[in-house]
Design a protein around this nucleic acid. Structure first.
Length: 322
RNA sequence: GCCAGGAUAGCCAAGGUGGUCACGGCGCGUGUCUGAAAAACAUGAGAUCUCAGUUCGACUCUGAGUCCUGGCA
């Protein structure tokens, strides 16, 4: 049986150090599933725990996926432990949870072939969810030119458009999604392709059964599926504030500047990252530095809470308080 | 000290001419989530500086007080 360990949870709960410790004990390698740490150049602000010159090259450092994009898949060594899927994506590249799934499956398999234990670690629950439980509708990849066009439309226009293509699909949405442009655009994308023969709708049932019965999913035989969360919101606030201040000290602002100097824009996918957004506002002189820091801390706290709201519905997660 | 302006939820802030539950934004709480997710959304709870007066009725008018801001000295 192939083993795999998964650690997820709120940001700033010490997932990485726990994972590293486990990796040492169990002869494992880390596979990152933190969407922001997958971007190149975002280092300090996303909390990549790396030192200079810690890179390693794997046998196959580039990977060509179905989506026709190529990614870097191997990268750092932290305290002698290999860490995969850091710095895989260029900040201006569009990337999806589907792309992640493809990448991760290759990496995981490679680790297992070498008789090491993959330790999945990250806070992007959507990525983990898709990796573990699969997708409902397959073979409808994002159509970025279409999305760009649709992004110019108003909410009302999007709603009208979806209704006209597939009224039922619109009606089945909850109130939140009915008002959510991004979700509407995705639905329109699906609706316009739904009749193609290649598209199959899958059941919503998870492929992975609860821990006691880890049968369904081929690649992933769950053994440990841990979620880290804060014991209280007060603790969360204190820790996050401290961490933001530390990242500022480490040169967060210079990191943002250097990305901007490289030509990345605030609208690039990788730049839509907490910390970046607020510092860019400051650099554009829209807000004071003090205010930017405050907003950064707030956004980070809100994010951590949202993470738990999303994750707590997954009954396979065993929670550990920090 | 004088003159002027202002005091509306945790913060910012609308409310010509007095009359149903006082516009918004941020924050806060709760939630949504199947190819953009550190994204994008939904939803809820919060307020008229104090005292007195006018009035059937005042956040809105009058007086006093307290505090704040700008100008003059």
């Amino acid at each position: 049986m192939k083993k795999i360990i998964i650690i997820t949870g709120q940001t700033a709960t010490g997932k990485t150090s726990l994972a590293l410790q486990l990796a040492k004990e169990k002869n494992g390698e880390l596979v990152n599933f933190d969407s922001r740490q997958m971007y190149k150049y975002l280092t300090i602000i996303t909390g990549k725990d790396i030192k200079k010159n810690s890179k390693f090259k794997s046998q196959k450092s580039k990977l060509q996926l179905e989506s026709k994009n190529s990614y870097d898949i191997g990268y750092y060594k932290i305290n002698g432990i290999n860490v995969w899927l850091y710095d895989a994506v260029d900040p201006k590249q569009n990337f999806s949870s589907f792309d992640f799934k493809e990448l991760a499956e290759v990496v995981i398999e490679d680790i297992q072939k070498r008789n090491k234990i993959p330790i999945l670690i990250g806070g992007t629950y959507l990525y983990l969810k898709h990796l573990l439980y699969g997708f409902e509708t397959e073979n409808i990849p994002p159509n970025w030119p279409l999305r760009k066009k649709l992004n110019k439309k108003s909410l009302k226009e999007l709603q009208k458009l979806l209704k006209s293509i597939n009224y039922q699909m619109f009606q089945h949405l909850n109130n939140s999604d009915k008002n959510n442009p991004q979700r509407l655009i995705r639905k329109i994308e699906i609706a316009t392709n739904l009749n193609l023969p290649a598209v199959q709708k899958k059941s919503l049932k998870p492929k992975v059964q609860p821990l006691t019965n880890p049968t369904g999913y081929v690649a992933l035989n769950l053994r440990i599926y841990t979620g880290l969360r804060f014991a209280s919101n007060d603790k969360l606030k204190v820790v996050i504030k401290k961490r933001v201040l530390k990242r500022l000290q480490l040169g967060a602002i210079d990191e943002v500047k250097s990305l901007l100097d490289k030509g990345y824009k605030k609208t690039d996918p990788g730049m839509k990252t907490i910390g970046y957004q607020q510092i860019i506002e400051y650099l554009e002189k829209k807000i004071s530095k003090e205010n930017a820091v405050k907003k950064w801390i707030t956004a980070e706290i809100q994010y951590a809470k949202r993470q738990y709201t999303f994750m707590k519905k997954d009954e396979n997660i065993v929670w550990r308080l920090v």
